[in-house]
């Protein structure tokens, strides 16, 4: 992990808790939450509120909690780093490779994974979605971000709650549409929303 520092005080502290209305989730709700059964892949930890949000519709929710398995992954000194990343990813995933999802929630994770691991994860996401599927990314945009991924949930009112769990900060990737498309190749940015208070959300689809 990169060097970490104390966050410092102030209302704009990267480690401050925030609740922000999500325009992307309005789009997600309008496009995906209908009468048909929705299939969602959540790469984050299990969160009660998020489960409740998707429980409003007939839904299959697949939770992978990848941070616990992949956050500390680093490429080996020797050998094929991409192949090693794919092996680690295959070990971490529990859902079937044949499963296809309408929506993938990649909250905060792209800011914390090693770029090689994020590339491998993106390839896996591409293989797990269809042309109409959406990938939702949320992350901080500042130079400093919390040292560990925050707990992010979506409430029934389509408000995203961002709650950092670490008071320390580290340098962030400064997510922007260009940076994200470079880090997650093969996905095309459909929408990008500045949520304010240093958070941004993105909706991506297959290129």
């Amino acid at each position: 992990m990169a060097a970490v520092f104390p966050a410092g005080a102030g209302s704009t502290s990267p480690t401050a808790e925030r609740a922000l209305r999500s325009p992307a989730f309005r789009t997600v709700s309008e496009r995906l939450l209908g009468d048909r059964r929705l299939s969602v892949l959540d790469l984050g930890p299990p969160m009660t509120a998020t489960l409740g949000f998707f429980g409003q519709a007939p839904c299959r929710l697949c939770l992978e909690d990848l941070a616990a398995d992949l956050l500390d992954w680093r490429p080996p000194q020797e050998g094929d780093a991409v192949a090693e990343a794919e092996v680690a990813l295959a070990r971490a995933f529990v859902h079937s490779a044949r499963e296809r999802f309408d929506l993938v929630l990649a909250w905060d994770l792209p800011c914390y994974l090693h770029p090689i691991m994020l590339g491998a994860l993106t390839a896996h996401i591409r293989a797990s979605i269809g042309p109409a599927s959406l990938v939702h990314v949320v992350g901080p945009t500042g130079e400093r971000i919390p040292a560990r991924p925050a707990r992010i949930t979506v409430g029934r009112d389509q408000v995203l709650h961002y709650a950092p769990e670490d008071d320390r900060v580290m340098p962030g990737p400064r997510l922007s549409p260009g940076v994200l498309e470079r880090l997650m190749p093969g996905l095309r940015l459909q929408h990008s929303f500045l949520l304010g208070e240093g958070l941004q959300e993105f909706l991506l689809a297959l290129r």
């Binding site: 969160m47 429980g55 007939p58 839904c59 697949c62 529990v94």
Partner: peptide, 25 residues
């Protein structure tokens, strides 16, 4: 299904229609 915040869970959750009288989902 209730997953308390802080629990560890890896897998899928199927939230099915319960009964016709209770509506969907």
């Amino acid at each position: 299904v209730t997953l308390e915040d802080g629990c560890r869970f890896k897998g899928s959750i199927d939230m099915e229609t319960v009964t016709a009288s209770e509506g969907r989902g």
